[in-house]
Every structure is written in C-alpha cells, then in structure tokens.
Write a protein that binds this DNA or RNA. Structure first.
Lengths: 340, 340
DNA sequence: TCCGAGGTTTAAAGCGCTTTAACTGCGAGT
DNA sequence: ACTCGCAGTTAAAGCGCTTTAAACCTCGGA
C-alpha cells in the first residue's frame, strides 16, 4: 500500500513483459497498437509513474540538466524560469542547486555532479577559468553571464561592454561628464562591467573622470557606496551601478541624504530585474534578455549531448538600455549645491 | 577516460571487494582501520565520488527532501537557504522544484515525486487541503506558511492573525482608525492574512472601518491598490498590505501621487523580506523567522522518516512586528487634505 | 509443404551501488 | 585438540528500469 506501483505491476496486470511496458511508456517503436492501448490503460488505472532514479540508472542517457544558481538573485530567478520552460519543451529534466551562505560554488556543483547531470549550466559562476575548464573536462559546461577564456566551456553572455557603453552614451548624451561607477565586488561578472566602464569612459574622452567606488551586488553595497558619494565634495552627476540591487542601494542612500534622483544625480543599474522596474525606483537599466540567454544555454548543452558538437560555443547577446525615470540631465551648477 | 571511476575501480586498486569500499566510504562499521586508510587513499587518488543515482536506487533510504517553491519569491529564497543548511547538517540532500509561468504546483510536485523524494516540503502551497491530503497519503508532506485542515499533512506556519494583530495594535496605538487592507489574492496564505485583518479590526472595535482592497502578492498589485486608495475621497490613514512586495507597490503609488509615507499614510508589510528592509522603503513589517520555519519543517520531515512519527504535527510560530520608518502617527485633519 | 521476411514480444543482462547472510581466520575457552 | 565467538571481509542478491539479442508468430511466395 505504501509502495508505488512498479513496472512489474503494470506488466502483470496487462499480461505482458516489463520490456513491452517500458517500450510503450516511452513511446518507443515496437509494441502493437493493441498492446499500447492496454498498457496505457493499465498504467493509468494504477497511477503508475516511472521512477526517475531507476530510469536514470538504467538509461545511459539521463536527460538531466544541472543548474547552479544563487537563489537570492532575482535575475537568476528569471533565468531559471526560462531554462525550465525550455528544458520542459525538449524533454529534459532540470535539477537546481543553489549557493547559500554555507554552500559555495564547489559544493553546489558537486551536488549536481552527484546527480550525474549530463550537463551543467552555471549562472554567473565566480570560479576561475581554470577551474571551469577542468570541470568541462568531465561534463559539458555552459557558463551564463560571463566570459571564460580557457577550456572547453560554452559561454552565453551579454556583451557587457556594449551594455555599459550604451548606458554611458545615454548619460553623456544628457550632458553628464562626472560619471562614477559603483563596483560589484570581486566576481567575474562584476569585473567585466567594471572594465566596460573604464573602456567606455576612455572612448568617450572622459578618462580623467573615471571614478570607481567599492561596492557589491547587494543593496547594502550600494548604500555604502551611495553614502560615500553623497558626502563627497565633488559629487558626480551620474552614477552607474554594477547591478540593479546595487543601484537601488545607491539611490536609497542619495534619497536619504536629501539628494534628488534624477534631479541632482542620475542613476543607472544593470540587469533590468523585475525588482527594479516596478518599485518607485523606476530605474534606467540594462536589459539582458533572460529568455534568450536561457534558450541559448539549454541549446548549447543539448547540442553537445544530442548532436555531438565538440567545439566550443560562445554566444554573445547584445543587451539593450531601458531608459526609465532615474536618469535625466545633470543639474545646473547652482542647483547642484542644494543637496550638500 | 570520460567515465568517472566506479566502486569497482576503487576496490580493484585496493584489492578488496566493492562491499568493503562501500562500507568504508559511508563510514559504516565493519572494516578495519587499515582497510579504511587504504580505501580512503585510493578513493582520493582516483577522485572517486559515489553516484547518487545508483546509491539512491540501491539504498532503501534516499535521504532526499523535495522542496517546492516559487523561485521569484525572496521569502522563499530565504527559506530555501535555511532548509539547505539544515539538510546539509543532518545529511539529507535537497532537490528544488520551482513554479514557473508554465509549470503549476501539480507539475512541480510531480517532478519531486519522480525523483522519489522521501518527503516534500511545500512553500506556501495553494492547492486545496484535499489535494494535499491525498498527496500526504503517498509521501510525508510538510506545508510551510499555511494552515491545512484535513489529512496527515504536517504544518509549519506563522500565526498570521498574531502578526496582523500586532501590526494593527501598533497602528491603533499610534492613533490610526481608518486602516485599510490590501488583499493578497486568491492564495491560501493571503486568505489567512485577510482573515487576520478582519478579526483584528473587529477585536479592536473597528469593525465599521474594515476596508479590503483587491490586490495580489506582487508590486503591480500593490500599485493598483495604492492608486485606488490615493484617489479615494476617504483615504485611510494607514494601509496594511498582504506582503512586502505588495506594500512596496502601495508605497510607490502613494509617493507618486504626492502622498507622503508615513507623513500622510502609514504602510505596513508582511514577510520582512530582505528586499523591503533595505530599499528606502524602510518598511514596518511582520517578521516570520525563516530560519525557524525551515528548521521546524526539516525536523518534521526527518521525524517522520527517521523516527517513525505518525501523528500530524503543527508548529505555529509567533511572528513579530518589526517597526521601521513607514509607520507614524496619523496626520492631523488639516494636514490630511494636503495630499488630495 | 517449407522457408524467410517482418512485425511483436520477451528473456536476460546490465546500470552502480547497498546490504545481508555467509564465510574466513584466529585466538580464547574447555 | 576442538569448538565457539568474533572481528573482518566478501559473494551475491537486489533496487526499478532500459535495452539488446533472441524467440516467436503469422503470412506470402516458392
């Protein structure tokens, strides 16, 4: 009674072998129409559902994709949602493994490996290229959101420099020159954006205005940076943050300090997370098209698994700037002192 | 080369049977110290890692907890983090199954069942009690965050009426009478809070002031409700929202309408999500102690699995009000018209 | 009537691990 | 000397499914 029906049970009820039942249930060719009908009927009556664990073991193929994510990230949430949808569509199962305070990337990835995923998708991994490369030697790896220089790691990432450049162009177009950047910390993704900022400023002829404030990808980090900037004597007229959460923190600090956004300072984020574009933040930010990234990533994995692709794949998607209410022209000089 | 080492490989290398290796690797009693050492050494050299799929199949026990969640919910993220930590601690593995736009509760739960989880933890499930009860007949079920009346379903939930009551007491203590409630939609959790509001108002002698505005658990829902309230001729002096995201939306709508929070309207949320207490929202809200809920839930599952508990368990945790900056005394009558 | 082709069905060998009962020495007890 | 007990070790039987090779069964053609 506490046992779920097994293949045997279905087979016995129909009076055929387990092999036939297995064939029918997976829609494999072989069994006759009549057999199919009866098996399907019996299976339905018994409420039979295959034991994935056993199937996975028996089948060489497991049709399992592992996804490493940070469950606290709204952007990852979006990606996962799309990955699930795409995987469902093509008949793959997804197993999620999240980072937590007590569970670092290595642990999270090991968990996926222990499940014998056929491929792993890593959302914004921070591991060294070297580490990813050696992982890729064991199992197909798709890194999402960052560049990976060495090894056989597939990559799906937005062109961070393009996103940052567009944002900068938007700001300079509005008349800003003193544009600071709030850093995203030591992560690889953060590094790409920082770099994009540096390059973009140089290209815009604003090399002497480059100013990078320490921060991280959380609201706290943004708040700290925002406080610093708010108190700074030569406050920038615009601030670009390494992601939305950070940008929200920056805005928070500004508003509390009595500095109006975008009246006195413009703020730009990165990610276009649901979080940011709803709250009264109304943040100008860079959209990365989670759905497209997810589709490409799943596709990359499946190409390796089902189509035997061997060469490395790198998909670079162009992000696009979404202009909202947190940016505007810089204040006229006399206005600017108001906030001090 | 592309094959991971198996138990056989380790056994062969040491010159013992696979049984011994298995025993050693799981720390089971039996093998001698000498054997242990050599096996461990060989396993390390080969980089051996057990195949969970195979172990799960072979072992009657799988030590697997399934968790159904909505990956978009920050509160669920917190719970999952704590559940992971707790499970790690006691040697259980966790498999996550998320709701998405194209994947409802039934699908998400089926996925967990297919993995043959030993027990499932459901975060804020919306399924009917009946449905949960029949699920519980197959596998131990712990519902987190809501009440379940029938069936053998364990429940870990905050005392919603207490949370709401405390919030109401806080508001009436400040002098509010016209306290509206923005509803959380059709979910079961939302229903509990709505009910808590009704009861609380009655008990406070404010039955005639009961006012429930349609909404849901997202910022959008809050914004819609907020707009309605902002435009209302008899605007309440305080608004309690069904969760933080909703509260944030309400505040957003107010602020955009030029109504100050808490100057003209006080707003209270529910969840104390990281989201809310960082952003310049600075929301007064009800904290549900995710860590405690997670611990109790895991414990409940483990008691069923390892200690043979049979009777139903219901843990009701007292939430506590966290007073922040979004609440204050109601405006004096002459001030109030200012915002109209 | 016999044979082979083709369409169905199935026996049986795994998949990689766990677990139990049985087995092996070996020193202690009688 | 002989049994007994015990620590250590292992053979072997699964776990529930997939898969392959072989068996089986018409049925038409020679």
């Amino acid at each position: 009674m506490d046992q779920r029906p097994r293949l045997d049970d279905v087979a016995a009820r129909v009076g055929v072998s387990t092999a036939s039942v297995s064939l029918v249930l997976r829609g494999a060719p072989g069994p006759s129409a009549e057999t199919r009908r009866r098996v399907l009927e019996a299976a339905a009556e018994l409420g039979y559902r295959a034991d994935r664990t056993a199937s996975m073991l028996a089948r060489r193929r497991r049709h399992l994709l592992g996804v490493m994510l940070d469950i606290r990230s709204p952007f990852h949430a979006e990606l996962v949602e799309e990955i699930q949808a795409e995987a469902d569509r093509i008949g793959y199962e997804v197993v999620l493994s999240t980072l937590t305070r007590h569970r670092d990337e290595d642990r999270a990835i090991e968990a996926l490996l222990d499940f014998r995923c056929e491929a792993v998708l890593l959302l914004g991994p921070d591991a060294a290229d070297q580490r990813l490369a050696s992982l890729a030697a064991q199992v197909p790896v798709v890194a999402i959101g960052r560049r990976v220089a060495t090894g056989d790691v597939d990559v799906v990432r937005p062109a961070d420099h393009v996103g940052v450049a567009e944002a900068l162009a938007h700001l300079t177009g509005l008349g800003h020159h003193r544009i600071a950047f709030v850093d995203g910390g030591r992560g690889v993704v953060a590094a790409a954006r920082r770099r994009g900022y540096r390059d973009g400023m140089r290209r815009a002829g604003l090399a002497d205005q480059i100013r990078i404030i320490a921060g991280d990808h959380t609201e706290e980090g943004g708040i700290r940076a925002g406080r610093l900037l708010a108190a700074s004597p030569d406050r920038p007229t615009a601030v670009m943050a390494s992601n939305d959460r950070c940008a929200v923190g920056v805005m928070d600090a500004f508003v509390r300090a009595g500095i109006e956004v975008p009246g006195q300072v413009s703020v730009v984020g990165y990610d276009d997370s649901t979080l940011a574009h709803l709250v009264h933040i109304d943040l100008t930010t860079v959209n990365q098209d989670a759905a497209a990234q997810a589709r490409h990533a799943v596709l990359a994995a499946v190409q390796r698994l089902d189509e035997g692709r061997k060469q490395r794949l790198e998909v670079v998607l162009n992000p696009r700037l979404v202009v909202r209410g947190s940016t505007g022209p810089p204040p006229r000089p006399e206005d600017q002192s108001l906030g001090r």
